Simulated assay, not measured.
Amino acid sequence: MTTYVWDYLPEYEAEREDLLDAVDTVFRSGRLVLGASVAGFEEEFAAYHGLPHCTGVDNGTNAVKLGLQALGVGPGDEVITVSNTAAPTVVAIDGTGATPVFVDVREGDYLMDTEQVAAAITPRTKALLPVHLYGQCVDMAPLRALAARHDLAILEDCAQAHGARHHGALAGTLGDAAAFSFYPTKVLGAYGDGGAVVTDSADIDAHLRQLRYYGMDKVYYVVRTPGHNSRLDEVQAEILRRKLCRLDSYVAGRRAVARRYEEELGDLAERGLVLPSTNEGNEHVYYVYVVRHPRREAVIEAMKRYDIHLNISYPWPVHTMTGFAHLGYQEGALPVTERLADEIFSLPMYPSLSVGLQDKVISALREVLRTL
């Protein structure tokens, strides 16, 4: 049996009856676009975060893009973020007409090095975009202090951090607004694309609702500001409503797998394997379980002999991609990010990963590193 980093089928078998009922509920509702399921999910997802507002959108990329636009980001502005992230973070910044500005990440946790942000601020800087990567939060206190000092907005990229906490506060409640993705692999994943932006600001939320609906208010055909067609689908919203009730159990399942890996693989540090660490004050949700090894490619190829196919998040830093060559970053500009890109890879991680498959991964990795 081939083992992959992620597999939704075990979860689907366990939740199939409820998920099919969700689809039937929408189809029988008589409303297929912006109906009761989207409204219900928005209310419930906002409540989960203790916030008054949530706007559902069609995917996580547009959650970032519309979130930035609702915060006033546009052509001529700069947004400070990281290159060690999924490309959609930066694609979304570019989509607003703004320029992404990168700072490096930290060696120990792979998250934004907040000590580098102050030097990256210019008169054109409009927003900070911390990415809560792999399942734990960026240190937000210094970013909030900088934002207050320079009158900057903060949009959290929470695509990989559903349910994560930072000093007790949920990811998504630490800035002016927060963007979420519900791509199927996420901690809270739909059965297709989906996204949302949460905020405590009624004005930001009202702007978001305009932007996702062509720039219109409640009257169709009356465009108040140029917008998009970026509505969360009713079927995905109803599925997400059902799964939101299980989000905490999904997180618990991921943490259980992570504990098992730590217990069984912790002694492999002497063979060059670096396991993920959790920062003080953080509660990690392990969207992916990212490890490091100086001979990553050899490890990944060797694991294939055991029919285990691993993933790399991410092998190409965004600043090195040809699509962003116009930004002018040269090799060596972000040394930690570039070094990590040669060493990091992900072990299988999802809540329904069976003990048997965990054993298979652990045994194979131990053997590979013993003989490498």
Rank of each mutant, 00 (worst) to 15 (best):
V5K: 03
Y8W: 15
Y12L: 15
E13D: 10
E13A: 13
E15R: 13
R16K: 11
L20T: 04
G40C: 13
G40I: 11
F45Q: 00
Y48M: 08
G50A: 02
C54W: 05
T55H: 11
G56T: 13
D58K: 14
G60H: 09
N62G: 11
K65W: 12
Q69V: 13
A70H: 06
D77T: 05
D77M: 08
E78L: 08
A87C: 08
A87F: 03
V91P: 02
G97L: 13
V101W: 00
V101K: 00
V105Y: 00
A127E: 02
L128Q: 06
P130Y: 06
V131N: 00
V138W: 01
A141P: 05
H150M: 05
C158Q: 04
C158S: 09
Q160M: 05
A161L: 06
A164K: 04
H166G: 01
G172R: 01
L174I: 05
F180A: 03
V187K: 04
V187C: 04
A190T: 05
T199S: 12
A202S: 13
I204K: 03
D205T: 07
H207F: 09
H207I: 12
L208F: 13
R212L: 09
G215D: 10
M216C: 14
R224H: 07
P226G: 05
H228A: 15
L232K: 07
L232I: 13
D233K: 07
V235N: 02
E238A: 10
R241Y: 03
L244V: 03
R246N: 02
R246Q: 08
L247K: 04
V251L: 08
A252P: 08
V257P: 00
R259I: 10
E263I: 11
D267S: 15
R271P: 05
R292S: 14
E301G: 07
A302Y: 01
H309I: 14
L310E: 03
I312P: 01
P315L: 05
W316V: 14
M321P: 02
H326L: 09
L334C: 02
L340G: 00
A341T: 02
G356R: 15
K360R: 15
V361T: 14
I362N: 03
A364K: 08
R370K: 13
